[in-house]
Amino acid sequence: MAEAEGESLESWLNKATNPSNRQEDWEYIIGFCDQINKELEGPQIAVRLLAHKIQSPQEWEAVQALTVLEACMKNCGRRFHNEVGKFRFLNELIKVVSPKYLGDRVSEKVKTKIIELLYSWTVALPEESKIKDAYHMLKRQGIVQTDPSVPADRTLIPSPPARPKNP
């Protein structure tokens, strides 16, 4: 296991989104999630760092940052959801997909992934009303035309506890 002593949120995220990674590196992604949970201001700092990476002009860096964001939403609980559910962060995602901001310079892959994530959170986190507001604004602007079909495991809905596998 990697030596975690002295690692900061920033250093974990730099490793998790390093453009020279050949594939997503889950050791670093989970290291970042764990560090968020350890720090008092973890979620606030993490969303700021993530927004910066998601706006990277390098597609692979941005895609990895979105994977990290998705992992944090699954592993860092309500404290993290609350930060993502603020316009301060949501606006940073909106900037990436909107042609009025960065949208024209960003790959379709990154934009599609952002829209899928936003939609999955509107389904899984109905109490985070600002996520819905942001998503519906993108629809009104025509940036989102139809709701994406998000696989069930991409949403945050926990699996039913007593799923009968062998009825």
Binding site: L90, I94, K95, S98, A134, M137, Q141
Partner: peptide
């Protein structure tokens, strides 16, 4: 109080 003022300052991006 801090949280309340943060809430007031949190606006959707103008489009």
């Amino acid at each position: 109080l801090g949280e309340e003022s943060e809430e007031r300052d949190d606006h959707l991006l103008p489009m």
